[in-house]
Design a protein around this nucleic acid. Structure first.
Lengths: 228, 228
DNA sequence: GCAACACTTCGGCCTCCGCCGAACCGTGCC
DNA sequence: GGCACGGTTCGGCGGAGGCCGAAGTGTTGC
C-alpha cells in the first residue's frame, strides 16, 4: 500500500460521494449508497469492496444487507483534511467539528438517537446487561424486548411499520465507540425526551441530563450520569 | 474542484513522490524532482503544472529554473494524514513531527541552514534591513554583500564554486514563514556554529543560542534572542 | 417451494491518463 | 553570435479503471 494508492481510493467521484455520505458516522447499506451516488448496484458493490480492502471502510453483513461505515477516526481525519483543502466543498454534515465542544461531547442527538458519552454508556450498559447482543450484527435479545416493553416501546410494531432496521450501530467520533441507532435507538431517544430524562440545550443537538434522568438511567441501566 | 479531484492530485506514484520529497519544506527545481522520481523532464513538467493548478504547490520562476514548494500548512496537513493512514509508508523525513517539541521550535538546523524562530527572525531582519530583497525571487543586495563580507563570507566565490543557488527561501512549518536557505544561508549557519553563536543540543537538529550569540545577533541584525 | 430482493461476478465498452521522445523556447555563459 | 542547458508543448502509445447489463448467489417472506 503506497500513499498514491491510498489517495486513489478517494480519487473517484463515486467513491468520494460514498465517503462523504458515510462521514455522518452512520452505517449505510450498499443499496442506499448506490442510490445516493446515482450508480448501479454492481458499480457500487465494486467500489465498496475497494474501499473496504483499502481499510477506509469496514463492513458488517446482516442477512442480505451489507452495512458499511468509516473504519475509524483515522479515516475520518483523512477525509476531513481532504475536504478542508478542497476550496468549495461544502463541509460534510458530520459531527466532528461540533462535537469537540464540551456540551455536545457529553450528550447529544445524532439524527434521532442518543450519542456522546451518554449514548455510548447506554449502548455499553445494554450490551453488558444482555439487552442487546453483538453476535452477527446488533440485535435485541428476549430480555431486551421486555425491557423496551416496560418503557412502552413495542418492538414488534416498530419492525412491522417500516423498512428501517430495528437496531444498528453508529460510530461515535467523540468517544470512538458505538452507540445505538435504528428504529429502536430512535424510539429510546424520543422516550427519553418525552419523559424529560434529557432536554435540548437551545436549538442544537446538545442535550442535558435532568435530575429525573439521572435517576432513570441509574435504575434502568445502572449508569452513573453524575459527571454527564 | 471536487474532493475526488483533490485526491486525484495525489493518486499517482510520481506526483506522490514529488510531494513526499517536498515535505522537507525546501524548494526543489523541476529537474531535481524528475531525477528523484525517475521520470523524464517532460513528464515531471506536466505533473508539476497539475499540482500547482490544484493549489498543492506554489512555484517561483528564477531564470531558467522553476522552483516549487508545498503551498502551505494545509497542503502539508493533507499529505500527513494520507501518510498517517497508509500503513507502511515511511514517515516522511520532514520537520513537522519533531518541531512540535519546544527546543527545535526555537532554533534548529534545516539541512545546513538556520530554521525555527531564530531562522525566521534572521530572515525577517535581513529583509527589513535591506540586506536581501524579495523582488523577483530572493537575492542579496549590495549592502547585503558587504554585510556578508564583514563576516568573512565571500559571496562571489560562493556563486562561482557550485551550481547551487546563492539564496533561496525555505518554508518553516513551525513558524509558517520563510527562512534563508541556499549557499549563503548555509554559509551563515556554519559561521554561526564556528563562532559559537549557536551550539547543537545533543546529536539532533536542535540548537541553543549562546551568550556570545545573543550579543552577535543583536549587533548584526538587531534581534532580541533573550526568549530563544 | 416460489417469488422478491440485496448484492456480487463477469464480460465488454470506452474514456482517461501517465509515459516517452522529438521539437521548441528562453536563459545564461563563453 | 553560438552553444549548453532547463523547462515546455505536442503527438502517439498502452494500460488502468469506471461504467453498465446480464447472469448468478444467498436471504427473506409468503
Amino acid at each position: 500500500m503506497s500513499l498514491a494508492e491510498t489517495a486513489g481510493l478517494l480519487a473517484d467521484r463515486t467513491r468520494a460521494a460514498f465517503c462523504l455520505a458515510l462521514f455522518d458516522g452512520r452505517a449505510w447499506t450498499a443499496g442506499e449508497l448506490a442510490r445516493h451516488a446515482g450508480v448501479s448496484a454492481s458499480t457500487a458493490s465494486e467500489h465498496l469492496s475497494r474501499l473496504v480492502t483499502g481499510g477506509l471502510l469496514v463492513e458488517e453483513r446482516q442477512g442480505r444487507h451489507r452495512y458499511v461505515r468509516l473504519s475509524g477516526p483515522a479515516a475520518a481525519q483523512l477525509i476531513e483534511s481532504l475536504a478542508a483543502f478542497t476550496p468549495d466543498t461544502a463541509t460534510p454534515a458530520g459531527l466532528r467539528e461540533s462535537t469537540r465542544l464540551g456540551a455536545e461531547a457529553r450528550a447529544r442527538t445524532c439524527y434521532d438517537h442518543l450519542a456522546g458519552q451518554l449514548g455510548v454508556s447506554v449502548a455499553a450498559a445494554a450490551l453488558e446487561r444482555g439487552l442487546v447482543t453483538e453476535e452477527a450484527g446488533l440485535a435485541v435479545t428476549e430480555p431486551g424486548r421486555r425491557w423496551f416493553a416496560e418503557l412502552g416501546i413495542d418492538l414488534a410494531a416498530l419492525r412491522k411499520s417500516g423498512s428501517r432496521p430495528l437496531l444498528r450501530s453508529c460510530l461515535d467520533w467523540t468517544e470512538r465507540r458505538n452507540h445505538l441507532a435504528g428504529a429502536a435507538g430512535a424510539a429510546l431517544c424520543s422516550r427519553a425526551l418525552d419523559r424529560r430524562w434529557v432536554e435540548r440545550i437551545g436549538s442544537g443537538r446538545a442535550l442535558t441530563v435532568t435530575a429525573a434522568g439521572r435517576v432513570a438511567f441509574a435504575d434502568l441501566l445502572g449508569i452513573d450520569t453524575a459527571a454527564t
